[in-house]
Simulated assay, not measured.
Amino acid sequence: MKRLGPMAALWLALCSGAAWTQQVPEGRSAPQASEAVKYLSGGAGDEERSQLMAQWPQFPLLIVFSADGGAYAVPDSVRIANAHGTSLLEVQQAGPLLMVNLPPGDYRVQARIGGTVQERSLHLGSQPQRLDWRM
């Protein structure tokens, strides 16, 4: 059985409106779900970034990861927990764009790159929110 390339998988998923749980090792941009939390991750190239950004209104949270110099960064892992500390989403090799479909509320986001772990508190309202995160 022939495997779809990352862009073909993204196109197919976007056209069908489907979210799937299969990991996409190279492209990381196909819609994915972790339990009930849907997310998109990817955006390394200009075309892929444009395709992802077109989907932003469907995802209340957009996190853009970058290094100190401004170049895009890809954290080793990202974890999002609710206000009670319950883990809702854990993504490996997330980004540099990570879009997450979460309801309004308070969250704790943790990103790990190399040996460094950073955390942010986040309040989501009813409007889509962008979080620019320098690693």
Rank of each mutant, 00 (worst) to 15 (best):
A30E: 04
Y107I: 04
Q110I: 10
R79F: 03
G42V: 01
R28H: 09
L88P: 14
S41N: 05
A83C: 11
R108W: 15
V109I: 15
W133T: 05
G69M: 08
V74N: 02
V109S: 09
W20G: 09
L98P: 08
Y107T: 09
A54K: 15
A18C: 04
H123T: 15
Q129V: 03
Y39E: 01
W56E: 07
G69R: 14
Q58D: 12
A54S: 12
T21C: 02
P128K: 07
D132F: 09
I80H: 09
Q93E: 05
G114D: 05
S121G: 13
D106K: 14
G85K: 07
G105C: 15
A67P: 00
L98R: 07
Q118N: 12
V74H: 03
L52H: 06
L61N: 11
R79G: 02
L52R: 02
Q51I: 08
Q51N: 15
P31R: 06
W56F: 14
V117M: 11
M53S: 11
S126C: 02
G114A: 06
Q55C: 10
Y107H: 08
R120N: 00
M99Q: 13
V24K: 00
N82G: 15
Q22M: 03
R49K: 12
Q129T: 13
P31S: 03
A44Q: 06
P31C: 03
P60K: 11
W133D: 08
R28E: 08
P128F: 07
V78D: 07
Q118W: 03
T86D: 09
L62G: 02
R120K: 12
S29D: 07
H84D: 14
S87Q: 09
V109G: 10
D46V: 10
G85W: 10
P31L: 03
S87E: 14
T21D: 06
R130I: 07
A33G: 00
A36Q: 10
G115P: 02
T21M: 01
P104K: 13
G125C: 03
G115C: 04
N101P: 00
S41A: 13
D132E: 15
E119T: 15
Q55D: 02
M53A: 12
R130F: 02
V109M: 14
F65K: 06
G43P: 06
Q92L: 08
L131W: 05
A33H: 01
L40D: 00
G27Y: 03
N82Q: 13
T86A: 11
Y107W: 12
G115S: 14
A54E: 12
L40H: 01
R130Y: 01
Y39M: 01
Q92E: 11
F65V: 03
A111H: 10
S77G: 10
P57Q: 11
A94R: 04
Q92S: 13
D76K: 11
P31G: 05
A83P: 07
